[in-house]
Computed example of a mutant assay.
Amino acid sequence: MRDATTASVLASVRRLEAVGFRAWPAEQAIYDGSWLIRLTRAHPSKRLNSLNPLDPGDRRDIAGRLKAAGKRFAAAGRPLTIRMTPLAPPELLDHLHGEGFERFDESIVMSADLSQGAGEGLDQLPLRDINRFIDARLAISGEPESLRAGLCSILAAIKPETGLFLLQSADRPSAVALAVLDGELIGLEQVAVAEAERGQGLGKAVVQSALRWGHLHGARMAWLAVGAANAPALALYRKLGFSEVYRYAYFRERNEA
């Protein structure tokens, strides 16, 4: 029974990892066996610049492959960053601990059954203007203008259908969400609420609008990834019917300086 349960969980992880890669595509995707190297010069996102082991049984030459991956990351001007999900081999985790790598930034991948009410919300049409969405996202998050070109290229590279959602108050952007419709799955990316307007239900409203749009277009399940330390966002998503599927964390070489 335990083996069957483990197989079922890993199947869910594989499915969500695959749609996650399509929802937030990297400029380069390079495979070394089942280890996926994702690199993106135009944007510093860890998800877009990470080594992703995708098979617990792929434990061949861990030290040599990490060294080769490190050279690829260095050539791209990025630090070697390993994203560890339940698909990573335990031997790799042991190796990282033994070599002094440090763990940081844990995230939780959550899902919700849209037939249970998570698809309720305002019937809002998504934006068609990528630049307007990016303007709002940068203004709300306070991220630097230098990320504009990278965000534009990422959004343009998403192959599944997307919905760009924006809420405004007093002609200022208040909340944004990117929805990616991939078959019967809808993923949420880039969810953000303006700091001065948090606690007013805007996050719930923009997420529900995105989920309703996805549900009306055939989605049956929603998914998202949220920082494990982001208590307000976790509380919101749980209220909307999301529950944890799995976690992942990043590892990097320890800086001794």
Rank of each mutant, 00 (worst) to 15 (best):
I154A: 01
V206P: 00
Y248H: 15
G227W: 04
L147K: 02
T5M: 14
R78H: 07
R72D: 10
P25M: 03
R83K: 15
P53W: 00
R60E: 15
P89S: 11
G214A: 07
P79T: 13
L114V: 10
A149T: 14
A69H: 05
V206M: 02
N49C: 07
R38W: 06
K67T: 10
E143T: 00
R172G: 10
E253G: 06
S141D: 06
G117E: 03
E120Q: 13
T6K: 07
R247F: 04
A192D: 14
R198H: 09
Q168I: 00
R254Q: 11
A4C: 00
T6M: 09
S107N: 12
E99H: 11
H217N: 15
L202K: 15
R172H: 13
M110H: 04
K204E: 15
A23H: 07
D182Q: 12
A192V: 12
E195F: 08
E197Y: 04
R132I: 08
E189H: 15
D171T: 04
V207S: 09
R38I: 10
G121Y: 12
D61E: 15
L36M: 05
E27H: 13
F21Q: 14
L155I: 15
E161M: 11
Q190I: 01
A23M: 12
L125T: 10
G98I: 05
R247G: 08
G183R: 09
A88M: 10
A74H: 09
C152D: 06
D113P: 00
L151V: 03
C152M: 11
R2A: 05
H97C: 09
A233F: 01
A149W: 05
A4R: 06
E256G: 00
G241E: 08
I140H: 02
E143N: 03
W223Q: 13
L236P: 04
D58E: 08
Q208I: 05
K71W: 01
L224A: 05
F21N: 11
A175G: 05
R14W: 06
Y246W: 08
P89F: 10
D135W: 13
L240K: 11
L188N: 06
S146H: 03
E256W: 13
